[in-house]
Write a protein that binds this DNA or RNA. Structure first.
Lengths: 140, 140
DNA sequence: CTCTCAATTTAGAATAGGTCTAAACTGATC
DNA sequence: GATCAGTTTAGACCTATTCTAAATTGAGAG
């Protein structure tokens, strides 16, 4: 639709194919919303709203399906900070988050500003899958 | 009701009074379940089940009320690790958690085994309220 | 191009965890 | 022992999410 980006459509299509996901109209549309504007943190409802605004006709069920498929494919990362609501982060590199409790939104902690002095040994019979650091902040 | 414990009832009663909570039958019963067996991590449903088993007649609504009142009073700490379910931790000291994703339960990381090398500066206009570290583990 | 079919999408029902409400109850005070 | 604010309760309600079964569609075969 525009020449401003370096063939974003083709890139997205590749990304989906590589992930083993059939590049349907809905998935391409959602991928464009998610991945062409830098790092984002969205909830299902938010993304659904954006999709409707952007004329991408897609049901809420598909939003949920897609978010989970993208997450399983490693294109997204789920972040849990509030009971009863999931956020999905387009930044899948190793990093952590500020959570603005009052506003209810996430913000990446840039670079390696958070470093754990040492990792604890996992309980016997288990292996560490991931470490999440949430820095909860409030207006001051 | 028994002389077997070193007046735990009086202790719990004190705790509630100090927290500004009227020591009702329900709150005393729940406090006993929560605070007389070392550190615990419970969900509302779990605690409700235990209460019924222990002959403490209490509604689910009261379980929720009580968990939140205890949390606000600093007797409990809420831990969010799964979308759609809250855990309450009787250990309110500064510490972090292992989360067993397969089994769906929490475990305190003992002592100061987790230490952050450095805290990031909070976004301007905000102050850090709390830092949560969740080490997600799975059976190996 | 058209056919075919498994993969995908969908509307709407269903579920789960949690909150709200208004009425009944109860603990502390007089 | 009466009073009444604080507490509890059943049950309705809500919100985020998942499920289901039917309709649609993308991609390969012909």
């Amino acid at each position: 639709m525009s020449d401003m980006h370096p063939r974003p459509y083709a890139t997205l299509l590749e990304r989906l194919k590589t992930a083993g996901l059939r590049p349907t109209r809905q998935r391409l549309g959602l991928a464009r919303l998610l991945f062409s504007t830098g790092d984002r943190h969205v909830t299902a409802e938010q993304l659904h709203g954006e999709a409707l605004e952007a004329q991408i006709r897609v049901s809420l069920a598909t939003i949920y399906n897609t978010l989970h498929q993208f997450t399983n494919a490693g294109l997204l990362r789920e972040v849990v900070v509030e009971p009863g609501r999931s956020y999905f982060d387009t930044n899948t590199t190793d990093h952590h988050h500020f959570f603005h409790e009052a506003a209810g939104h996430l913000e990446d902690i840039p670079g390696e500003q958070v470093r754990l002095a040492e990792l604890p040994a996992p309980p016997s019979g288990t292996a560490i899958r991931r470490v999440d650091v949430i820095v909860r902040v409030r207006p001051s």
